[in-house]
Design a protein around this nucleic acid. Structure first.
Lengths: 195, 195
DNA sequence: TCTTGCATACATGCAGCCTGTATGTTAGAG
DNA sequence: CTCTAACATACAGGCTGCATGTATGCAAGA
């Protein structure tokens, strides 16, 4: 019963944490970080603030966990889309990854959390570090592969990826009506990378 | 004495407001919006919180004023730099404006206020509206002129400007050491706009 | 010109909320 | 049976926004 027992403890722990993170994600998405209070999150998760502060150092730590999760989902979506075809070629993989990013970013709550609140709450440096482990990493890998294949010019990889990422972030904020215009403009800009 | 008297009142008013905005700008720049309290701002300005709330509806309104001022300075710097040469040509004007933007953005406090805190505090929509009246407007005008001169391709103007603006914002976050790499990558991307 | 009444620029005080921590309490694990 | 971990409860401090007080211009009439 050791295993069962130990798991029942850690299961409970993880379940509580998951409920907190889930409730927090919903509230942060709807009302933003500043307008969401910890009593609110705890109530939505069906626990007290004591539980929240038992599992997370502070409100920011809870937000950080939400951000990490969202970034993880994002990176997985991108990689799944970029790796669908058998022999896609690096350029096609990039385009598919970009589409997957824009699709995943259709969720307004995700946009608010990742693009609006996260830089201010976590600070640009920390958010950049998180990004570097997830979405940006996929972009760097994709651009690097394209460079190796001589499909695009040789350029400083991370700065280029950061710039392209910033463009994608901005495009993700566009409403559906103007999205085609953003795509057109992005295509023109990315055109400059071709060898 | 009507004029003198009336001016003495409004002079006092403007002086107090200016001191509040100046103190707020300094504190927001150093510690960010969330970590700056209204007692702190009032003390730094040498008044009480009563004065602050007499002149500004709330803490956010004070921040909004600071943001507007910073954006105004930015737009003026850009336009001054873009309009120096006699017959610059639209492309050269764009390059000079871009340089002026990056130079003005060297101030870390300005970066924090405009690029980190402003989107979260004011919301992306309102900040976009402010931007549209100032820095972004200069970019739209510049790109529009370049399009009219057939120097760059015909593309949806505002989306293009927003994307290029996002690139510049990101480049402005780079430290001095990696700035040349960002410039290289930006040059390549902008290259795609050429006719 | 004097003073009188009002509006405006502030100061002070108050109510409510929120965050983070410190201290209980219960239940599982060894 | 003890001990530790997962919570709940209670508390202290700070902050925001408003409501109320006060004093100083300021304009108009006697």
């Amino acid at each position: 019963m050791q295993e069962a027992n130990r798991r029942s403890q850690s299961t409970r722990r993880e379940a509580t944490k998951a409920r907190l993170v889930s409730a927090a994600r919903r509230l942060f998405a709807e009302k933003g970080f500043a307008a969401t209070s910890t009593p609110e999150v705890a109530a939505a998760a069906g626990v007290t603030r004591g539980a929240l502060y038992h599992h997370f150092a502070d409100k920011t730590a809870l937000f950080r966990t939400v951000v990490e999760e969202e970034h993880l989902i994002l990176a997985m979506s991108i990689e799944a889309a970029a790796g669908t075809d058998e022999e896609p070629g690096p350029v096609k993989a990039l385009l598919q990854g970009g589409d997957a990013f824009l699709t995943a970013m259709q969720d307004p709550g995700r946009r608010r959390i990742l693009l609006v609140d996260a830089p201010a709450v976590l600070g640009r440096d920390e958010l950049d570090a998180i990004d570097a482990r997830h979405s940006l990493r996929t972009l760097i890998e994709g651009l690097g592969a394209a460079m190796d294949a001589k499909a695009i010019r040789d350029l400083p990889l991370e700065p280029l990826a950061r710039l392209v990422g910033a463009m994608f972030d901005r495009a993700a904020m566009a409403d559906e009506a103007t999205m085609p215009d953003y795509r057109k403009a992005m295509r023109a800009l990315v055109r400059g990378l071709k060898t």
